[in-house]
């Protein structure tokens, strides 16, 4: 009996100590970790949209949409994903809503084969999207990289999804604004 009590006491106090220490560690590191995540998104937004002003973050269907103005024109960026070779590939797509064109595409997260599927990260591939119009067929206009068919096709799918999403949810907004200009 005495042994049992000691057992429970020792285990409980070790667990309590552990929880206490970890709470401290978490309180200390959580803001820094959160900061890194914000920084990464901010960096990616400036990569895909360039010099922007008046950025607004909209919550649409659980996705964050970053809406802003560049040289007075309405631009937006959104993160979408599609499954590649090693799992989901996350892509941020920046678009000019008034010219209905893609500005720039940035691959955020992926687990593609190193040295093969990783070509999707390279500027050489992502620049193929720049300047394409919303109505273009990306499957025809963006060349697949041979040897990395699955990975490149997944990026194309993700970009299609982003364009579709933005057209569906922000399409009206442009018309409203244009009317305002008149």
């Amino acid at each position: 009996m005495k042994d049992n009590i000691k057992m429970v006491l020792v285990l409980t106090s070790i667990a309590l100590m552990s929880a206490l220490v970890l709470t401290g560690v978490y309180e200390f590191t959580a803001p820094i970790i959160e900061g890194h995540a914000q920084e990464a998104i901010a960096r990616s937004i400036s990569e895909v949209l360039g010099q922007i002003e008046d950025m607004e973050v909209l919550e649409i269907e659980g996705k964050e949409v970053y809406k802003a103005y560049r040289n007075g024109e309405l631009v937006a960026a959104v993160i979408t994903e599609a499954s590649g070779y090693g799992g989901a590939i996350q892509v941020m797509v920046g678009m000019n809503l008034e010219e209905e064109k893609i500005l720039h595409v940035n691959v955020l997260e992926h687990r593609e084969t190193p040295g093969i599927g990783t070509v999707i990260e390279e500027e050489n591939f992502t620049k193929r999207f720049a300047g394409l119009a919303f109505k273009d067929s990306y499957r025809q206009d963006v060349d697949i990289i041979s040897g990395a068919t699955v990975s490149t096709r997944a990026v194309i799918t993700a970009v299609e999804r982003a364009v579709e999403f933005i057209q569906k949810h922000l399409g009206d907004e442009i018309q409203l604004e244009n009317r305002g200009d008149l």
Binding site: L11, I14, S18, V21, L22, V25, T29, I32, H36
Partner: peptide
């Protein structure tokens, strides 16, 4: 008991690395 002690230090390393070597 060993497992809890080890897991505690592992979590410390995990969060420290996420914060300072992301």
């Amino acid at each position: 008991s060993f497992i809890v002690v080890i897991a505690t230090f592992v979590t410390i390393v995990d969060y420290t690395m996420m914060a300072f070597a992301p």
